[in-house]
Amino acid sequence: MNKREFLKDAILFFPAAATLQALAPAAEAKAESAPSAPGYDATKHWYGMGIEVDKCIGCNRCVEACKAENDVPEEPFFFRTWIERYQIHENGETTVECISTRTAQPEQAAPEDPTVVRTFFVPKLCNQCAHPPCVQVCPVGATFQTRDGVVLVDSTRCIGCRYCIQACPYGARYLNPRTRTADKCTFCYHRVTEGLLPACVEVCPTEARIFGDLKGRADRLVRFHRVNQISVLKADLNTEPKVLYAKLDGEVR
């Protein structure tokens, strides 16, 4: 290439680059608007869940329904949602046990511990934080927040580095042994975008779980938020969880 040819090419390049730069944002916007299914506008929702701790009977049906709905591995240590039994003892000590790891219901009622002054179940799941620490730490941008406030994992993008599992203050993530990627509760995103309830809410026998849209004015969850004294887990971390607990004992962390 001599100098003359080089100059000719260079003169063509600049206007071409400028045009492409102008077109690029439009292309990006097009890719962004693609996800919404027909009739579903993610910007109009802000999903959350209410849990009335007083009503949970620890039957584990939610855990099973979640596993069936979302193909969570059967092994009793992979959970998108799980139930914890809290026991507060006379001396102020609190013991926590995950009852979802049990594979069979004991035939006999557990002997009662006379030092326990209070005991109750607490259902736990991903808190779908408004400011999710797991999203901040992901080195490849595989985990992200949707417009309707649900934190999702892109399993094609995830490299399985487990940073997010470490970063989650609620222990809500696990590494799926089949896909080798991080996995977590999605609020049953494929169900809620179709207007169904998440599987755990669908099967809960005592209505301990309520699912709703915090942007809906007459929504059940909004009412739940209004009429109950709401606590969230680890409020001091400013993650702003969207899983709202009512009648939560102060000992629960």
Binding site: S33, P35, A65, E69, G141, F144, V153
Partner: peptide, 19 residues
């Protein structure tokens, strides 16, 4: 991240409903 996130959302929404 937007284009691949959009694809991930679509994939998530396409998952089969069991209940």
């Amino acid at each position: 991240a937007r284009p691949h996130q959009a694809a991930a959302v679509e994939r998530e929404m396409a998952k089969p409903v069991r209940h």
